[in-house]
Simulated scan of single mutants.
Amino acid sequence: MNGVELFLLGRTLMKIGEEALPEPPGGTGRYAGSTRLVLVVASDIADHPDTAVGEIAARTGLPQSQVSSAVARLNEAGSVHTAPDPADRRRLLVRQADEVSERVAQVRAAGIDEALIAALGSDEPRRLRQVTEALDVLARNFLSPSGTPGPRRGDTVPSSE
């Protein structure tokens, strides 16, 4: 695999992930492209609790207006909480919610089998199991325990049989 193939694989996996997410509330159909934006912001908040919108914008390279919009959506879904910064009451600090909201639980519980079957064009159990196991290995090596980017320390890659 080369860098271009890895990049294209990453984009394909993102699309499959979007397909695996449950429909947004209100039956408005699939998510708009803003789903990636919200997930990037949520990931940054998970890695940097008690952070300001401007700091998220600086770390992610996203415009502050888009970060504010994403934080508002996450707050509405019960995924994050905002509070005034004690050092500067004009700023809001954002952190993950202590309790998982019903909507967040629904999104996290969404399975990927249907989206993988559609992407593979096959429901052959052996092939589906192989792909799912490969994704599990990648997740263990490239996602933190909170599900955000970053290697997990102490995890080992299972040996191939």
Results as ranks from 00 to 15, higher is better:
Arg73Met: 08
Ala46Asp: 10
Ala58Tyr: 13
Thr51Trp: 08
Pro86Tyr: 02
Arg90Tyr: 02
Pro86Asp: 01
Arg89Glu: 06
Gln64Cys: 11
Gly61Ala: 14
Gln64Phe: 10
Val71Tyr: 03
Glu76Gly: 04
Ile45Ala: 08
His81Phe: 04
Asp44Ile: 03
Thr60Met: 08
Ser68Arg: 14
Ile56Thr: 15
Pro63Tyr: 12
Arg89Asn: 01
Arg59Ser: 15
Val53Lys: 07
Gln64Thr: 15
Thr51Asn: 11
Val67Cys: 09
Leu93Asn: 02
Ala57Ile: 10
Ser68Phe: 07
Gly61Pro: 13
Thr60Asn: 08
Arg95Glu: 02
Ala77Tyr: 04
Leu92Ser: 08
Val53Met: 09
Asp85Arg: 01
Val94Ala: 02
Ala72Gly: 07
His48Thr: 12
Gln96Leu: 13
Pro63Gln: 14
Ile45Lys: 07
Leu74Lys: 12
Ser43Lys: 06
Gly54Phe: 10
Ala87Val: 01
Arg89Met: 01
Leu93Lys: 04
Ser79Trp: 04
Pro86Leu: 02
Pro86Phe: 03
Ala87Cys: 00
Arg89Gly: 00
Leu74Thr: 12
Gly61Asn: 13
Ala52Ser: 15
Gly78Ile: 06
Pro49Trp: 09
Ala87Asn: 05
Arg90Phe: 01
Gly78Pro: 04
Leu62Asn: 13
Asp50Phe: 07
Pro84Ile: 00
Arg95Pro: 00
Ile45Tyr: 10
Ala58Leu: 15
His48Val: 09
Val80Arg: 02
Val71Lys: 03
Asp44Ser: 14
Ser43Trp: 05
Ala87Glu: 09
Asp50Leu: 12
Asp44Phe: 04
Leu62Glu: 15
Gln64Ser: 15
Ala58Pro: 06
Ile56Glu: 10
Gly61Tyr: 11
Gly54Ser: 14
Arg95Ala: 07
Thr51Lys: 10
Ala87Met: 01
Leu93His: 03
Gly78Ser: 05
Arg91Gln: 07
Ala57Asn: 11
Glu55Asp: 15
Gly78Asn: 05
Ala72Tyr: 09
